[in-house]
Simulated assay, not measured.
Amino acid sequence: MRNEQRFLTISIAATMVVAALGIVFGIVSGSFSIAFDGVYSLADAAMTGLALWVSSLIVRSAQSNEKAGRIRNRFTMGFWHLEPIVLLLNGCLLVTVAVYALINAVISIINGGHELFFGAAIVYSGATLVVCVVMASIGIALNRSLKSDFIALDIKAWIMSGGIAFALLVAFVIGLAVLPTPMAWIARYVDPVVLGLVCLVMIPLPIGTIWKALSEVLLIAPVDLQEHVDQVASETVERLGFLSYRAYVARVGRATEIELYFIVPQGLPAKTIEEWDALRDDIGERIGGESANRWLTIAFTADAEWAE
């Protein structure tokens, strides 16, 4: 978690630098696509900051000091549910920015394009491409062990930004090359055309993240987890002679939430608390995945209404 926070902090700083350069160079060069890249980076930095805040809340709540105790007393269910909300907001914001930029690109093309100072544009694109490659490489290497959704989304954002920078660099070099030729009229359309193409590529990219986050916000049961829990519960019912069971599962951020209710026959011979606890331990081991991120509840009742 602390490595995650360090990377996100560095990522925010780098993104803010790229955003500031994008806005400044966009104004100097007259490039809508560079200005869009700066605004896109600014929005990404804001969302990464929100992700860092959620990550820090999770870390602080796990500590053993008095402040952490007060946090746990106020948020007894933890903070895992904030992760998919942040990811959903992030994905929707990036798609919205890209759609707006695409509309502006189409309007600019219809109006005949505009002049562009290619020298400043090329300098910005090259510098931004280097920063994006470095940050994406660091994130990929770090996330091989952390498996963080926040870092994964941030890596995707850096790759997307790097793709934008590379496309801009190629387009601006081509635009500069055609200026002394009879095809110089093309140069006026380079900026809006490349902006439109970049937006068309970018808009679908966060869709997978949006759908995954939305399914977690809506507590849609993951098929693989549901099938595994159903198998363990069915075997337990058959092995111990229970009547049936009810299983409720969900993945919310890093947390796996499982509630299992076993319907036992009325008049079942009494067991000690220790025996019931041992049975819960056995079922929990069969389900697997025990960690601080697993929320497992196992209950036994003769009244099926308690399980509904």
Rank of each mutant, 00 (worst) to 15 (best):
L8P: 06
I12S: 04
A14C: 14
V17L: 15
A19R: 01
A20C: 11
F25G: 10
V28K: 07
G30F: 10
F36R: 05
Y40N: 04
A43C: 09
A43S: 09
A43G: 12
L52M: 14
L52Y: 14
V54P: 06
V54D: 03
V54N: 03
S61V: 00
A62M: 10
K67H: 14
A68K: 00
G69I: 10
I71C: 12
I71N: 13
R72F: 04
T76E: 08
T76I: 00
F79A: 01
V86P: 00
V97D: 01
A98F: 04
V99N: 05
I103L: 10
A105N: 01
N111G: 06
G112Q: 08
G113W: 00
H114F: 06
H114Y: 11
E115H: 12
L116K: 06
F118V: 13
G119T: 10
G119F: 08
A120V: 01
A121M: 02
A121S: 09
A121K: 00
V123I: 12
Y124S: 04
A127F: 15
V130P: 07
C132S: 11
M135S: 09
A136E: 03
A141Y: 06
A141G: 02
L142G: 10
L142W: 13
S145L: 06
D154H: 04
K156A: 06
S161W: 05
G163L: 08
F166N: 12
A167W: 03
A171C: 12
A171L: 05
L176N: 11
V178K: 01
V178D: 07
P180M: 01
T181C: 06
T181R: 03
P182R: 12
M183P: 06
M183C: 09
W185K: 02
I186Q: 04
I186N: 06
R188N: 11
Y189F: 14
D191W: 00
D191Q: 03
V194Y: 00
L195H: 02
G196E: 02
V198D: 02
V198T: 11
C199H: 01
M202G: 04
L205S: 13
P206K: 03
T209I: 06
S215D: 12
S215N: 14
E216W: 04
V223M: 02
L225F: 03
E227T: 13
V229W: 03
V237W: 10
R239T: 06
L240S: 14
Y248M: 12
R251A: 10
T256R: 11
E259T: 09
L260H: 05
V264R: 07
G267I: 04
L268T: 13
A270S: 13
K271D: 09
T272P: 05
I273W: 04
I273L: 14
E274I: 08
W276A: 05
D277F: 02
L279I: 13
G284R: 02
E285C: 09
R286E: 14
G288I: 12
S291I: 01
A292M: 10
N293D: 15
R294W: 04
A299D: 15
T301G: 12
A304T: 14
W306V: 00
